[in-house]
Nucleic acid binder design. Structure first.
Lengths: 234, 234
DNA sequence: TCCTTCCGTGACAATTCCGTCACTCTCCAC
DNA sequence: GTGGAGAGTGACGGAATTGTCACGGAAGGA
């Protein structure tokens, strides 16, 4: 499921944690030396780091600072392990901005639960590589739109526009919402820009342009179905 | 999990099947009238249709033909239910191109297994909405690339190019592969087009352009890590 | 019916984007 | 060291793209 880097100089701990993690389907990488953490994190790009605060040579808080200083590792969540439930360690762990921490001795079950919670928090958002609405097929991988298998050549602006509309079909997208999503405009009050692009999009879609509906004073929407009477293509 | 349209005029069958499907986490829609299938399929866009071949008024094979004739429902897999294990029905079911079929009386367990198999076959491909490699963050939703949180303005061609490279980091992408993926060219032998776009991309990436490596006579690749000595940004 | 508001449309000019070409540079085999 | 093949680079012109504007027209309330 996820790749987890375990940092501890006590081999017993590493093995115990690894065993439990692997049992839950995770991939485990480990180092016992604080100085090796950053290079290893860069190399293996783990989804989470379990970091013992007590390490020979360089302590865990320092290691954590280094991880946070590097753009390549900055985003990786860290769970700290402190040797004892002392205030010093707790404060150090919190101050350096760990996502969670646990005091030794800890129960493997609790560690697993906390790891699960942190991973869930930083869960990756998945999206469909292909989105299909009726005869419309949006291919996000190739950044293209096809209708009934026929490729429609759209510019990037038009593609962003219809992608936004298709993300929530049959839902009204206000002008400001579209301006924001496609153009990044904060609040462009009056402008015919959106209208023009809607028209260009409709033109390129041909008959199927009827799927893009207008709601006066409200915005535009992608209609998954259109009136039967004009459904002359079937 | 999936939305499944069950078509049968016998309410007992519908309820039995629905119960089992819902137990497996599927959403069930049903109709008992053959003429209502197409409109319902268009309206609810199910992932699968379970279709009884014996229906009052219009028979299942006809319904299936209509589903196949409409671009909005053409892609939806269909499992046929035949009233008896007679050759006529079997042949009719196969001829009309059903994805699978089952003869009544059937065991709910077998139907569930076949439904699972068909759904797995037409499984949707999911992709990460955000792909991160080191400081590079590819946002497929907004079709943009940012490095260390800073947006890099790329043209559609450049974006496709780096998307292709980042799809398999540290793997060589041959010229023909890139030409094919980005430009759709079948086999453009000599051309400096790719080189030029690589250069433009590297320029826009600034220092980080070093992540795009050249393998003489082989192609280009996205390197997840670059030489430390030049890593002056940390 | 009239009037106001909002959307549709065609035209246009500025800008961006893209493929190509000529030339230079680098790498590697001999 | 030399030569050749392949990659890098800068420039350029044509094409595509885009935002804006003015005007026409539809919708809906008064």
């Amino acid at each position: 499921m996820s790749r987890i880097l375990v940092v501890d100089d006590e081999k017993d701990i590493v093995e115990l944690v690894s065993l439990h993690l692997q049992r839950e389907g995770h991939e485990v990488v480990s180092v016992g030396n604080g100085l090796a953490v950053l290079p290893m994190a860069v190399k293996t790009a783990p989804d989470l780091i379990v970091l013992d605060i007590m390490l020979p040579g360089i302590d865990g808080v320092q290691v954590h600072r280094r991880l946070r200083a590097d753009t390549r590792t900055r985003h990786i969540p860290v769970i700290m392990l402190t040797a004892r439930a002392q205030t010093n360690d707790r404060i150090a762990g919190l101050e350096s901005g760990a996502d969670d921490y646990l005091t030794k001795p800890f129960s493997p079950r609790e560690l697993m639960l906390r790891i699960g919670a942190v991973l869930r928090r930083s869960q990756k958002v998945v999206m469909l590589a292909e989105q299909r609405i009726g005869e419309f097929l949006l291919d996000r991988k190739n950044m293209s739109l096809s209708i009934s298998g026929k490729l429609v050549e759209l510019t990037i602006t038009e593609l962003k526009l219809i992608t936004t509309l298709m993300a929530n079909p049959d839902v009204i997208h206000s002008r400001s919402e579209l301006l924001s999503a496609v153009w990044g405009y904060a609040d462009d009050t009056h402008s015919r820009t959106l209208d023009t692009h809607i028209k260009r999009l409709r033109d390129k879609l041909g008959d199927h342009g009827r799927h893009i509906g207008t709601l006066r004073r409200q915005g535009y929407l992608f209609q998954s179905t259109v009136q039967e009477l004009a459904d002359a293509d079937a």
